[in-house]
Design a protein around this nucleic acid. Structure first.
Lengths: 256, 256
DNA sequence: AAGCCTATATTTACATGTCAGTATTTTTCC
DNA sequence: GGAAAAATACTGACATGTAAATATAGGCTT
């Protein structure tokens, strides 16, 4: 319960649940009981409801009226759209960065790379991704478009969870991410536009290839409405209340 | 009370207030009383509060805890960021459209242009902008990225209101918008990538020039924290409760 | 054994009451 | 008359109560 007194109860609940979802502590598809959460977090149902509403707007949570709520499944169609947004905006940001050349931010970027390496050494995959995001955020801050970055992070929850899963399960991912970042900083320092864009492209396209594997291994956490999964094996999603899973951390429960 | 029975009360309130704000029926800066709204719309304070919370997340409304809420002022810094998002995503969408060539959508785009002309003839500036947005939305639908478009529209409320004001006050704006759209459809039909991008660039950069004039004429609806407005004339923003304006429509109260 | 009906439990959506913080007005004091 | 201070009115944040919709479980019929 790391809430400051000054923080609103609803914000505290929102942040808490959001982190649990984005860190895959809560398994996608898991049922969420507003009553149970209000008990656990020692607040009334109002701020819990407010938090769940906010989360449902970001489509991190699905609310079924008069029925129940659950952590949303990872939707690969949405992942495609999220990547479209992220890719184009990051490219645009790099272009702007090079034309503005706010070189005083390169140090800050390097510091986040260092912290990312630390997290990698400690096998702390959640922090690993946190500093990855922080790194990219600096680029947007440097061109005075930080709100755009905040928008990207809030619009890309499916992609975020997939990246996390990929980093956790597929060992090779991590090394290349860090070297990509190092190369990008170098290119930005040289103001080498073509090279920077080439790196961004590569950086963002790599994870796409891994998706198929992950769907095959963990089908239950992915949404399977259209295509993507062969019809024969589309499992019927159980109703919400059947899904009162235990409280174990989903991510760390996976072998890797 | 144009609400369907099936619609949730909170959604009805949200939609109602949102339209009033985006259509500039509510003047930016105007105070909003949750109690008064619940009376007017014949619902309790809960759905009104829920709606105001949603609107504050889109930064259409500012909530000051224990003090009051108001329609947010138009923030030109935010407009800059909103344009950055919109510009880059629309360009990316046009590129993708041309490489995919889903020509079956060109008719639909043409139909929205026609409706926009109708609205223009009727001097219905709200519909004029509505069909403008619908036109651009088709491009995203055609490349199967409609959620990205929804994101753009919800992230760009400041820019939207500024466009509306510009279209209302500055007569010349409207003609060029329509001819731009016509030219864009033609370029998409020919798959002329360079021309399409040139048109997009022009389309989006035009309005920037008008901003300065509008700030000069209607300073009270713009946020004036940094730069933008010379220090001498920065008016102190009155507190919220001083602002229980009448219920007249702000937009139509302006001469043009 | 399979399918249907009903009783019950659980859920969200909404209404209402309370409280603490803030703005405004009134009062007090010089 | 003017400034400080106290009283008042209003606000959003949160707690809790109620109702309608939905899921579940168990018994019933066929």
């Amino acid at each position: 319960m790391a809430s400051k007194d000054s923080e609103k109860a609803a914000d505290f609940v929102y942040t808490t649940i959001r982190n649990r979802i984005l860190n895959l502590e809560y398994k996608p598809g898991r049922g969420l009981s507003a009553a149970a959460l209000s008990q656990e977090l020692k607040v009334s149902r109002s701020p819990v409801r407010e938090a769940l509403l906010r989360l449902s707007l970001e489509s991190l949570v699905e609310i079924f009226p008069q029925s129940g709520s659950r952590v949303s499944l990872i939707d690969l169609n949405k992942v495609t759209e999220e990547r479209f947004l992220r890719k184009n905006m990051e490219i645009a940001a790099v272009v702007e960065f090079i034309s503005n050349s706010p070189v005083e931010y390169l140090d800050e970027m390097q510091r986040f790379i260092d912290r990312q390496i630390e997290a990698w050494n400690k096998q702390d995959i959640v922090d690993f991704l946190k500093y990855d995001d922080a790194f990219h955020g600096v680029i947007f801050k440097a061109i005075d478009k930080y709100r755009c970055w905040e928008l990207i992070t809030s619009f890309c929850p499916n992609e975020h969870r997939l990246r996390l899963l990929s980093s956790w399960v597929i060992a090779g991912t991590r090394n290349s991410v860090i070297s990509n970042h190092q190369d990008l900083v170098a290119a930005l320092e040289r103001k080498d536009r073509e090279e920077a864009l080439r790196i961004e492209q590569q950086h963002l396209s790599r994870i796409s290839e891994e998706s198929a594997k992950l769907v095959a291994v963990y089908p239950s956490i992915f949404r399977s409405d259209t295509s993507w999964i062969p019809a024969e094996q589309t499992t019927v999603q159980p109703h919400i209340r059947s899904f009162q899973d235990g409280n174990e951390n989903f991510l760390t429960s996976l072998r890797h």
